[in-house]
């Protein structure tokens, strides 16, 4: 969490040492934080423990009994084996990857060119168009369901149910945020670099590729992390626009949650599997993710 722990004017330590009431308060902060950290981790721990217990154990005793008596608990990985084979969650996981990776990458280049125009070019209507982007970011995606189901469905161009439909939708829905994030970042780049490229006779197209796109990589990574988590964790679009065979793991989980009791033990294992990849992406790219949150924290 480097980006969080080392902000511009961090004065940690000094602030503590000069606090007049420091002595008296010193135990409050650790105590509060330990309690909060427990509250924030125990539920997830419960899922992990439950997913590793047999169906009978999980149905008769609480997961915490397994923690209190770890050696008599009878740990098992069969829920994971069951989830991956029987319920086809391996397929669901693959489907999630096939949905999320293109849907993350596709909006970037289109948005980057537009962001370049907004940042480095003067043209009539520029401010108005950008205000439109700010406004559109807040529009709820629910507006799109019926019109897009008509347009992409059998009465339209007939791609609903296929991955392509979901890629297109996420590209459209992610576009305002991507444009906004990239423009805000490009605005912080030194204008002189672009100016001197212009004097050297480079076209805007060349300037974009040789200078601005490489320099914007941190913002692109920030958006990509945000968009990946958003698409991976999405339920609505995947549920409505993917055929059952193409269902993502999140949709499969939702269906399992609907069938009360049936496959309960697979549900916990499946949920944990669905969390693993975003968690890994999150930890690997946390720095960029935090920056993305800070840059464009409002999305419709």
């Amino acid at each position: 969490m480097t980006a969080v722990a080392t902000p511009p004017r961090a004065v940690m330590g000094t602030r503590r040492s000069v606090t007049p009431e420091g002595q008296r308060r010193s135990w409050v902060a650790p105590l509060v934080m330990v309690v909060l950290c427990l509250l924030w981790t125990v539920p997830t721990l419960g899922l992990l423990v439950t997913s590793l217990r047999s169906r009978e154990d999980a149905a008769t005793t609480g997961w915490w009994t397994a923690i209190l008596n770890p050696f008599g608990a009878g740990w098992t990985a069969e829920n994971y084996a069951g989830a991956l084979s029987g319920q086809g969650m391996a397929q669901g996981f693959l489907n999630s990857v096939v949905v999320a990776v293109p849907a993350t990458i596709l909006p970037i280049m289109l948005a980057a060119f537009a962001a370049y125009a907004f940042t480095f070019m003067e043209f009539p209507g520029r401010d108005l168009l950008f205000v439109a982007i700010v406004a559109v970011m807040v529009v709820p995606i629910q507006v799109a369901f019926q019109p897009m189901l008509d347009l992409l469905g059998p009465n339209g161009i007939g791609i609903s149910g296929q991955f392509v439909a979901v890629w297109l939708l996420h590209t459209g829905f992610g576009m305002p945020l991507c444009l906004y994030t990239l423009r805000n970042y490009m605005a912080t780049l030194p204008l002189s670099v672009v100016e001197s490229a212009k004097i050297d006779g480079a076209s805007h197209y060349q300037t974009f590729w040789r200078l601005v796109a490489p320099m914007s990589m941190p913002a692109i990574a920030a958006f990509a992390t945000l968009q990946f988590l958003w698409v991976w964790n999405d339920l609505l679009i995947a549920k409505l626009f993917l055929s059952p065979g193409n269902a993502t793991i999140i949709v499969q989980l939702q269906q399992l949650l609907g069938t009360q009791g049936q496959g309960e033990e697979l549900l916990q294992a499946g949920a944990f599997i669905s969390i693993l990849l975003p968690m890994a992406v999150f930890f690997a790219l946390q720095r960029f993710f935090v920056r993305g949150l800070t840059a464009g924290s409002v999305k419709g």
Binding site: W40, N233, I250, L253, A271, V281
Partner: peptide
């Protein structure tokens, strides 16, 4: 938890 889906 920011990385966890609503369904998860």
């Amino acid at each position: 938890p920011m990385a966890i889906s609503f369904v998860g």
